[in-house]
Each structure stands twice: as structure tokens, then as C-alpha cells.
Computed example of a mutant assay.
Amino acid sequence: MSRAAPFSLRLSEEERTRLEAQAGAMSLASYIKSVVLAEDAPRYRKRRTPSVAEQQLLAEVLARLGQSRTANNLNQIAKHLNQGTLVVNEELDADLKAALADVAWMRVTLMRALGVSS
């Protein structure tokens, strides 16, 4: 029987020490395989596939992100704020309010799409 390519598993020193103690006289690889491949090993649920409605909401958010310059505008505002060159005027105030409205809409829409209540 030919063997497949090795499987790598990164462990902290603590995790490895704990596994080695649990393995006792067994090799670490044999112990890990016996636990993972045991009939009574825990089964984890599959990832939930988003509904069509949820996918549409996510697509809406992505489309709005692609069309808006909100991220770039906020980045420029933060840059000027950090440099001490930010001039607050009516135009900036309106831009900030629009950005806040965009972010709030995205938050609510993403939460709806993910089935999370606010």
C-alpha cells in the first residue's frame, strides 16, 4: 500500500507535550491518527451555504464598496488628521456624514445577510 504525501500539523510546545503525554507508549503519529480517525470522533457541522437572498445582500454591499470612494476618502481624512493638516469645513462635514451613512448601511446589510440580529 503506497502512502500519500505527509500531513503537517503545527503545534505549540505545550500542545505537543500534552499530546505526547496522552500518547503514552504510542508514537505521536499513531496516537493522533487513532484519535482523529476513531468512529466516535466528533463530527463538525458543514459550513452553511448562504441563501440566494443573503448572497444578493452581500453582492449589494460589495457593489456599493466598489462604486464608492468611502474607504479611500476616510483614509485621506485619517492621513490629514494624523499630519495635523485636516481642515474641517462644510464639505468635509458632509463627506463624513455620507461616509458614516454608508458604513451604517453596510453594517446593517451585512448583519441581515449573515442572519445576525443587531
Rank of each mutant, 00 (worst) to 15 (best):
47 R>G: 07
71 A>S: 15
41 A>E: 02
73 N>Q: 12
59 A>M: 06
69 R>M: 10
66 G>M: 01
47 R>P: 00
39 E>N: 12
66 G>E: 01
68 S>Y: 07
61 V>P: 03
67 Q>K: 13
53 A>K: 13
56 Q>A: 10
44 Y>Q: 13
67 Q>D: 03
75 N>A: 14
61 V>M: 02
61 V>W: 02
62 L>I: 09
43 R>W: 02
43 R>S: 05
66 G>S: 04
46 K>G: 07
56 Q>T: 13
65 L>T: 08
51 S>Q: 07
75 N>P: 04
64 R>K: 15
49 T>H: 12
54 E>I: 10
48 R>T: 06
73 N>F: 11
42 P>I: 00
63 A>I: 06
74 L>P: 04
74 L>S: 09
63 A>P: 00
74 L>T: 00
56 Q>L: 15
66 G>H: 06
51 S>F: 07
59 A>Q: 09
57 L>H: 05
55 Q>P: 03
73 N>L: 10
67 Q>P: 03
74 L>D: 03
67 Q>H: 12
44 Y>S: 00
45 R>E: 08
52 V>Y: 10
74 L>G: 02
54 E>M: 08
66 G>I: 01
69 R>D: 11
48 R>H: 09
74 L>E: 04
54 E>P: 03
60 E>T: 08
67 Q>V: 10
39 E>K: 14
51 S>C: 06
43 R>I: 03
69 R>H: 14
59 A>Y: 09
52 V>F: 06
45 R>A: 09
45 R>F: 10
71 A>G: 12
61 V>Y: 05
65 L>M: 15
49 T>E: 12
49 T>F: 13
70 T>Y: 00
39 E>L: 02
48 R>I: 04
64 R>H: 12
59 A>N: 10
56 Q>S: 11
70 T>R: 02
44 Y>G: 00
52 V>A: 11
47 R>T: 03
66 G>P: 00
46 K>H: 11
53 A>F: 12
43 R>Q: 08
42 P>Q: 07
59 A>P: 01
55 Q>M: 12
61 V>L: 08
74 L>Q: 00
42 P>W: 01
72 N>C: 05
46 K>P: 01
65 L>G: 11
47 R>L: 11
47 R>Q: 12
54 E>K: 09
66 G>K: 03
75 N>V: 13
54 E>V: 04
63 A>R: 04
66 G>R: 03
40 D>C: 01
56 Q>I: 13
75 N>F: 07
45 R>V: 03
56 Q>N: 14
57 L>R: 12
70 T>L: 00
46 K>M: 14
60 E>N: 07
41 A>F: 09
50 P>M: 04
49 T>D: 11
53 A>D: 14
67 Q>C: 00
55 Q>T: 07
58 L>M: 15
62 L>M: 15
60 E>R: 08
39 E>H: 10
56 Q>W: 11
73 N>K: 07
68 S>C: 13
52 V>L: 07
52 V>C: 06
45 R>L: 06
52 V>I: 08
71 A>C: 11
60 E>Y: 10
46 K>N: 14
61 V>C: 03
55 Q>F: 04
52 V>K: 15
48 R>K: 15
69 R>Q: 14
46 K>V: 10
54 E>W: 09
73 N>P: 02
42 P>L: 01
